[in-house]
Design a protein around this nucleic acid. Structure first.
Lengths: 353, 353
DNA sequence: CTGAAAGCGCTTACAG
DNA sequence: CTGAAAGCGCTTACAG
């Protein structure tokens, strides 16, 4: 009678249905599905029955009972899934996790601690196997608590001093320092700096790289040429415009973030200074090469960040229990033109206005 | 004795732990957590116990037993989470789903039916509440099968003729037609066309818009000026270069996809023709305005696509059982300069080479 | 309103 | 190797 059942009506077929049709016990079906050795004949019966019913294994029900509780999902907390940096990182993570059949739950924190906390809670509650997060830096206590409960966590793009939490970052200070040195070698001494919100870990590191290198090169920092804590393209444009229409003009400009770079470039072009004032931005752009002059950048490799972060996470999933690891990836200066503008002859005087 | 238990050692606290600490039945805890009316005193006890233990509700275990089987997750199949169009769409979907506490499982099909099938299977097996997919068009049978099993599905960016599947697309043909008409109004008659892989639904629609409008305007199509089935930036550049170095040159160029537009623009700039040959691309770019001349585009609104798709999905989750809906969003022509180059005087003869 | 019991789809000791 | 039974964390009829 039980074996008579066959294909059920509405609901999707379950292991019980498969067992009934194959004429074996429920446990045997489970074993076949999970690859535990089973008599070839029974295996064939089960496989056939499963195919016939269109059986789909339910990984969440499975995870509930398994001893390791693995859900085969990974949580990813990005700043914004839509920004190019985040989305490239996202893709790199997907490339390595999908290879293993892991699914990705992704969300955007928007730099908002409350949102980060909420995503963290939701992913934790769903028992993802691990977490890759670009931390705002203000939710570290909660991250630590979740980590202590056994959830592997890797922080990426921004460091975090948390027990058992691996990090993958970029040499932000080194990248900016390198750019400043190159500008210096081209004669530049009057270098302006546009910086992102100071609460961001990366903004802090980039600023430190600027200050340290300028000091090492004995270049004075002029107050009006340093604009920090800027958020977004419009702020970048405004700040650049102010810097570039002041009493004395800098001969070079370093913009330490994506949107600030775009904003500054608008200002430069609007003032007709794009061929006069050297400009280097942090982070690369798709179309940087099509601009005139092409934009020189301190490029980071979001794909490499994502890949390394995933690898660190996977090693934890594979049982690595050692101390936290801190990977620092290099940046790469891409000379395209805007950063190779030499310093105009001194004595020519102020040009703007 | 049971109430004595209190906080367990290693594992995260469960409803049972909360019930024990609060001195109530398991069901009561469940009711409090789910907001079913419960005596205020008991409610307080449960809330307190939950807080004290740091209890986290497990939504997946919950979904297993609930009558509606809701997992509170939505699956999203994009072409590539890293491409700007997809990631903006992704963000728009996140904005509406996160509002409702739904989590997003996202994946990239890479235009590969096998990958789409695999993601579809994985999401289905995980019993997501619904699916938003940018379909390759070659997995429609499987999509239909999943839909018939009760899973709400919305296709976005590309239409699909499937029972009970809503779609949100853009007026691709209309957008291209509009651009062609504008070029025609500026005197252009010799208009070249670069098209994406012909297997893509959007490529097909854009091509149809081009052909139909050219015919309506009595502009002949010259064989050498039509290049279709191109994939990626390099192919676009190559094709554009060939078109622009032929015996007779077109006076305007329509490129019907993102990467083709970039590739073509490289070719134009390399040949020094960017101020001579009019150029309109399909889909907008972040930096289009910084180019010289700025790039005119047929813009679509990926955020609107994502938002509408989410809304349609949510209405299905809310119980809408009516016939499938097909939303078509308009495109918007953005005149920036490259598309406003007028046709050079006839009789000036061929300029290039 | 409340609690004990059954059961969601599965895995895993536990006996045979 | 195989199957019946217990149980993962929860919800939901079912009686009280």
């Amino acid at each position: 009678m039980a074996a008579q059942r066959g294909r059920a009506t509405g609901r999707p077929p379950t292991m019980k249905d498969v067992a009934a049709l194959a004429g074996v016990g429920l446990a045997t079906v489970s074993r076949v599905i999970n690859g535990t050795p089973v008599d070839p004949v029974l295996t064939a019966q089960v496989t056939e029955a499963a195919k016939q019913l269109g059986y789909r294994h339910d990984p969440t029900a499975s995870s509930l009972r398994r001893s390791d509780r693995r859900t085969r999902t990974v949580g990813l907390i990005l700043e914004d899934v839509a920004n190019p940096f985040s989305s490239l990182l996202h893709r790199a993570v997907e490339d390595v996790t999908s290879e293993l059949g892991l699914l990705l739950l992704a969300g955007s924190s928007d730099e908002d601690p409350e949102r980060e906390r909420s995503l963290l809670g939701a992913f934790h509650a769903r028992r993802v196997d691990g977490l890759i997060v670009v931390p705002t830096g203000q939710v570290n206590d909660e991250l630590q608590a979740v980590r202590r409960q056994g959830m592997p966590i890797v922080c990426v793009d921004r460091a975090a001093e948390l027990d058992g939490v691996d990090t993958v970052t970029v040499d932000n200070a080194g990248g900016v320092g390198d750019a400043v040195r190159r500008l210096h070698a081209l004669g530049h001494r009057e270098i302006a700096f546009l910086g992102d919100q100071v609460s961001l870990w990366t903004a802090q590191r980039r600023w430190e790289g600027f200050v340290a290198t300028m000091a090492a090169l004995a270049c004075p920092l002029r107050e009006g040429w340093v604009r920090r804590d800027l958020h977004g393209e419009a702020a970048g444009e405004r700040a650049a415009r102010e810097v570039l229409t002041g009493d004395t003009l800098p001969t070079a400009l370093v913009t330490s973030q994506n949107l600030l770079t775009i904003g500054a470039r608008y200002a430069l072009q609007d003032l007709g200074l794009q061929h006069t004032v050297a400009h280097v931005g942090f982070d690369d752009f798709e179309l940087a090469n099509l601009l005139s002059p092409p934009l020189s950048v301190i490029a980071q490799d979001p794909k490499a960040l994502g890949r390394r972060a995933s690898e660190l996470l996977l090693s934890r999933l594979d049982g690595y229990e050692g101390p936290e690891r801190h990977v620092v990836l290099p940046t790469r200066y891409v000379a395209r033109g805007s950063g190779e503008i030499t310093r105009p002859r001194p004595g020519r005087g102020d040009t703007a206005r």
